[in-house]
Amino acid sequence: MTTRTAPITRRDMMRAALTTAVVVGTSAAVAPIVLADPAPGAPAAGAPGPAAPVPAGTFDEVYRGRRIQGGPTTPAPVRRAVARTAAAPASGPGIEISIDGRPLHVMRRADGTYLSLVNHYQSFPTPLEVARAAVDEIGTAQLSTTALHHH
């Protein structure tokens, strides 16, 4: 007795394509969580041994599967005296924050709190809290890499 195999139908091809798309999409959504650091502050695999002391006010942690880093800015050399007076912050050093390596633009308010472009109607007492709130707000989206221009 011979068995006869049915030809592959369009429905079978569509089912296979949909299954593949679901598997790939799920893998892409879960990858940042799986590949994230195992614990905040734990060294990454292959990372060098003990590092230099961390400057005060700096942070580097994984929050909800997103790596947030931040700390005081390092002043860049200024070539012109006019630019030096215009670029000098009035309230001390600035702050740099990144989420997954992309810059989060943060401003310090007159009362000492911080706000970001993601949460510009709410202020937070520390840069770490403003970064966490931005992660909460953007969810799985990425920050833009486009530089802001102030005119």
Rank of each mutant, 00 (worst) to 15 (best):
V34G: 02
A36E: 09
R66A: 00
A44I: 05
P77T: 13
A81M: 15
A83Q: 15
I33D: 04
A29T: 15
A51V: 10
T73C: 10
T5G: 05
Q69D: 04
V24G: 05
I95M: 14
A21F: 12
T74C: 03
D60L: 01
V23T: 14
A47I: 03
T26V: 13
A45P: 07
D60G: 00
P7I: 03
G57I: 05
T5P: 04
V82F: 08
G71N: 01
A90Q: 09
D60P: 02
A83R: 09
P50Y: 02
L18C: 09
R15W: 12
V82A: 13
I97V: 15
G94C: 01
S91I: 05
T20Q: 01
M14S: 09
A47V: 06
A88N: 11
A87M: 12
A87H: 06
T20S: 10
A28Y: 10
I95Q: 02
G57N: 06
T20P: 02
P43Y: 05
A44W: 14
R15H: 11
R67P: 09
P40E: 12
A31D: 10
V23N: 08
P38L: 14
T26P: 00
T74P: 00
P72L: 15
A56R: 14
A28S: 01
V22S: 09
I8C: 03
G25R: 04
R64F: 06
R84F: 10
R80T: 14
R67N: 08
V22I: 15
D37Y: 02
I95A: 00
P50F: 02
I33M: 13
V82Q: 08
D12Y: 07
P93L: 08
V78A: 04
I68G: 01
P93R: 12
R84V: 07
P77Q: 14
P32K: 07
T19D: 08
R80K: 11
T19Q: 07
P7E: 11
T73S: 09
R11V: 05
F59C: 08
A47Y: 11
I8F: 01
R15G: 03
M14V: 15
D37F: 01
S27I: 08
G41V: 12
V23C: 10
T5S: 10
P89D: 09
A51P: 03
G71W: 01
I68M: 05
P32I: 03
P75E: 13
A39I: 13
R80A: 12
F59T: 05
R64Y: 03
A29M: 11
G71M: 05
A44N: 08
G70P: 00
P53N: 04
G92R: 13
A88Q: 15
A76Y: 12
P93S: 09
A90R: 14
M14P: 05
T74H: 07
M14C: 03
I33H: 13
A87V: 12
P53R: 02
I68R: 02
P93Y: 04
G92F: 10
A44Q: 07
P75W: 05
S98D: 12
P43I: 07
R10F: 11
A81D: 15
V22H: 07
T9H: 07
P38D: 13
A86P: 00
A81Y: 08
A88V: 12
G46F: 03
